[in-house]
Structures are given as C-alpha cells and as structure tokens.
Amino acid sequence: MDEAVVPALRMDRVSKEYGRGSGRVRALDSVDLRVERGSFVAVMGPSGSGKSTLLQCAAGLDEVSDGTVHIGRIPVSGLDETQRAMLRRDRVGFVFQSYNLLAGLTAAQNIEVPVRLAGGRVDPVVVRDLASRVGVEDLLRRRPHEMSGGQRQRVALARALVTEPEIVFGDEPTGALDTGSARQVLALMRELVHRDGRTIVMVTHDPVAAAHADRVLFLADGRIVDEATSPSVDGVLRRMARLEAAGC
C-alpha cells in the first residue's frame, strides 16, 4: 500500500479493561478508528467516557486488552514496553495541558530534549526553523518562568514536532490557557495540519477547541457514539448536550 494512504493511526476492535472480577471496568469497548495523515481530530465525551484511555492506548502509553493499534505501519499492540517506548520516542509527539517543560532549560534546550534523549545530533537550524513556525523564535534563550502560558505551549508544540513524528497527541493542550492564548495555540495547530501536513489527535472538553478540528469524535461508555465533520461550536455543544441528557 502507498505510504501516503496508510492511516497515521488505526485502531481495530480495541478494548481496555482495568481490574478484575466484580471490580472490573471496561474503559474502551471495541473501538474502531482511522485517522488519516494530515488531519486534525478532536475527541470529546462526558467525564469517564474513555477519552484519556483512548489517547493512552493510541499512543502506546498503555497496553490494550483486546484488538490492535497501528501507528503508520507499526503494530503498537504487538510491541513490548521497551519497543513501545522507542516508538513513542521516534514516531510520536506529545503536547500536555501542563506543558511539561523542564524549568532549568531554555526554550531552545527544551525543544531539543527528544532528540538528545534519542542520542541524536541536534541541528540548530531545525530548532530555529521550528521555533519560527510556532512563533517563539525570539524566546529561545528564555526559561519557562520567563514566558507566558501560551508561549510555553508553543515551545511544547515545537518540542513535539522536532523528531518529525508520524502523529502528535494532545491531552487538553489548551486547558491551562486563557481564552486568547488558547485561540492562538489552536489556530497554530490547525495551521500545522493544513500547511505542513501534520497529524494531530487532541482530547479536549472545550467545544471551542474541538471546533478547530477537521473532525470530532464523541465517546460515551468507552464507545465512539457520534462524529462531526467540519464542526462548529454550536454543533459540538448540541451533540454534547444530547449525550449528557442521555445519561452517557
């Protein structure tokens, strides 16, 4: 199959269970999902619907109980923990709500961290180019405490992209930002997808954030129960209201 048409992420009949016996919880229930390359997908759902578990299983942070996960051509669900760690290091980028920048390092050094952890050689031209793309080229000598939340999240985005990952996962990436900074970061993420062909999967509780995606998946009780393409804020709110009213 042509590499261009291999999905960035594929999940087939994925289930995830925690605990045993009467205390067993089924967090994901036979989830099927395709995320095409160069797309921006948001995942929403009520509390306890399985959003975080979906992200963790998709990214190889947690083992599935049943089913298969592929990142590109790589069968994540067939790897041991060491192999999954190498996959995450080389092929996956992460952006977190709390930024997870190292306080003692400059912005440039934080961007370089994934390359250094992989034992690679840092190319300062690549770092400057990424910093320029995300709008922090003037902040490369600053440390996290010298930056705003929005600036820190832009640095985190550059760090997530420095290894040229097949897919970037965002766990509430705008949850800690004020409204203005959140909109700027979301616009940047959308631009990275549509201009640079990046692939992003983002878990969020914010309808405004979700409306920046190309596609929104709605989870309830560990299953994908609804989907919206070309989403609007009002449309996302209506779907979430229906899920809440149904007691999902």
Rank of each mutant, 00 (worst) to 15 (best):
104 G>A: 06
91 R>H: 15
49 S>I: 00
123 D>A: 07
129 D>N: 04
113 V>T: 13
121 R>N: 07
54 L>P: 01
81 E>H: 12
109 Q>H: 05
84 R>G: 02
113 V>L: 13
78 G>Q: 03
132 S>V: 00
87 L>A: 05
84 R>M: 02
93 G>D: 03
63 E>R: 14
73 R>F: 05
131 A>H: 05
133 R>N: 05
118 A>I: 11
104 G>F: 01
107 A>N: 11
86 M>Q: 15
88 R>D: 09
84 R>P: 02
60 G>V: 05
71 I>T: 06
66 D>R: 15
108 A>S: 14
91 R>M: 10
130 L>M: 12
120 G>L: 15
76 V>A: 03
58 A>P: 02
62 D>A: 14
114 P>Y: 07
83 Q>F: 09
108 A>D: 14
71 I>D: 02
58 A>L: 03
118 A>Q: 11
79 L>I: 11
49 S>M: 00
120 G>K: 06
48 G>V: 06
66 D>E: 15
75 P>C: 05
55 L>W: 03
129 D>W: 06
95 V>S: 10
116 R>W: 10
97 Q>C: 00
82 T>Q: 15
84 R>F: 05
106 T>P: 03
107 A>T: 05
97 Q>P: 02
132 S>I: 02
70 H>A: 12
49 S>E: 00
90 D>L: 04
73 R>Y: 04
64 V>I: 11
90 D>I: 07
132 S>D: 07
117 L>Y: 11
48 G>L: 02
75 P>E: 11
52 S>N: 10
72 G>Y: 04
108 A>G: 12
54 L>V: 10
48 G>M: 09
112 E>P: 10
63 E>H: 13
89 R>H: 11
119 G>F: 12
105 L>Y: 11
119 G>Y: 11
114 P>C: 12
89 R>K: 13
86 M>N: 13
106 T>D: 02
58 A>M: 01
66 D>W: 15
57 C>Y: 06
97 Q>E: 00
61 L>Y: 04
52 S>E: 03
51 K>G: 02
116 R>T: 15
59 A>L: 03
98 S>G: 02
87 L>P: 08
65 S>A: 08
51 K>Y: 08
121 R>F: 03
63 E>Y: 14
71 I>Y: 01
95 V>D: 06
105 L>G: 01
61 L>G: 01
53 T>E: 06
78 G>K: 09
123 D>E: 14
131 A>F: 08
64 V>L: 10
97 Q>S: 01
57 C>W: 06
133 R>G: 07
60 G>C: 12
126 V>I: 14
131 A>S: 08
94 F>A: 07
107 A>W: 09
55 L>M: 13
105 L>E: 00
51 K>R: 01
115 V>F: 09
83 Q>H: 12
115 V>L: 15
78 G>E: 14
125 V>K: 14
115 V>Y: 12
60 G>L: 06
49 S>W: 00
80 D>S: 10
106 T>V: 08
123 D>V: 11
125 V>M: 10
86 M>T: 15
74 I>V: 14
114 P>H: 07
70 H>P: 01
98 S>V: 01
130 L>C: 13
113 V>E: 04
58 A>R: 00
77 S>L: 05
95 V>F: 09
117 L>Q: 08
56 Q>H: 15
88 R>F: 09
48 G>C: 05
67 G>Q: 12
65 S>R: 13
121 R>M: 04
110 N>L: 12
84 R>E: 00
97 Q>R: 01
101 L>P: 03
